[in-house]
Amino acid sequence: MTRRIGLALCLALGACATAKVGLLPGEGGAPAGAVAVFDPASGAERGQLNQPDTETSLGGGPVRPRPLTGAYDALLAAMPAPAQVFTLYFIEGTTQLSPESVPTLDALRHAITSTSDVQITGHTDTTGDAATNDRLSLDRATQVREVLVADGLPVSNARVTGRGSRELRVQTGPGVSEPANRRVEVIVR
């Protein structure tokens, strides 16, 4: 009964569109992945979209993929760019930037704007004990923030963490000097 009234209303108003979900091609050639649809009350899976440029209505029935309709260019134009990651390398046991990372630091300076969300994470190699490495990794990250702040960039509230030698870029045993692991990763969103 309610459904019939709803149908009559939407015919009268010319607004019969139902809610829908559409799967787009992955960004930059990435695989499309999938979107699953569940019943909100039971949690039962109604099916999924796993082909790019398909859509299904969300009216309550099973998922029935069909070709994507509608234009999403205007909507997607508002999508922010992907996060950028900058990796800066350091001289062993110090917070001194390695000379080859100077161009990366310059690129980082140019990437940060007034609306950027900046996350700075320091790392060490496996030489030295854990406490020393935790401190050194945080010192490296803090040093990068201070350099950027000194340049007048709005990163005084950036999240700064030190991960010690927990997250190696190149896997090594303990006590190994590895330049690729002595680094600060800066994510700019």
Partner: peptide, 19 residues
């Protein structure tokens, strides 16, 4: 969540339209 469904992203880019 939409008024009639719950969706889960399985690694991807998608659009949801609720008129």
């Amino acid at each position: 969540r939409t008024p009639t469904s719950v969706l889960a992203a399985r690694g991807t880019r998608f659009v949801v339209v609720v008129p």
